[in-house]
Amino acid sequence: MTPLLSVRNLTLTQKHRKNWLDKAQIEHFGPIEFDLNRGETLAIIGENGSGKSVLANLLVGAITPTSGTIKLNGEACVLGGHAEHNMKIRMIFQNSNESLNPGITVGSMLQEPLRLNTTLNERERIQKVDDTLRQVGMLRDHKYFYRHMLSDGQRQRVALARALIMEPEVIVADEPFAALDPSVRSQTVNLIMKLQRDLGLGFIFISHNLGIVRHISDRMLVLQHGMVIETGKTETVFNWPRSEYTQRLVASHQSLMPNF
């Protein structure tokens, strides 16, 4: 069986310079390799600056990788910012507040990808927006709302609806639960898990919260300095971490919850 998403040898070399007189600092990322099956959840963990967000941006095409291939259903994607590929791999941003446009309604925000990438007419688009809003547990009236009229949980749902509206096969989420309070967080987690089960999505998410990682992910990827240092089934990694870095992460998590 071909995996839903297969990433091979993905690397990125970036040059950073503070000003144009300085010598450029070169940052290497990767190579990264992993597979994701349909309906599977992959968690990416690692400390700050380990390249988690870079990986997410590479997958959705916000950054063009230096080399490597991304295959979706066995077909190679065009790398970097290509619309067609983005429609199948959609991103949920870390801060749902920032990722929603404050000046336009939820409805026109959700219509945007449809207008740009499909030939649906106005009525079909509105129908699609209504359906998607219902899918994420909102009313269709919410399409008239502006960002500032929604609560944090609702914003997260809109961000999710925005990802779902193009009927993607993989959703990449960059710390989707970080800014939410515990009750909204568990609501969102349950919603995503339900949608994933219903639609058979592949779900890749980045999180600092190892509790959620252990709860929902099937496999996990541990990053350090832009390199994969450990990968495997979540339970295996949690119970028998191989590298010292993972051991530390897991230990610090477990020290917070002694009964676990």
């Binding site: 959705v60 095409g61 916000a62 910012g81 619309a83 983005n86 429609m87 959609r90 991103m91 941003f93 990722s99 446009n101 945007e112 990808p113 740009l116 990438n117 925005r162």
Partner: peptide
């Protein structure tokens, strides 16, 4: 960025 990823 979100709009750019939509292909805008």
């Amino acid at each position: 960025l979100a709009a750019r990823l939509d292909g805008a």
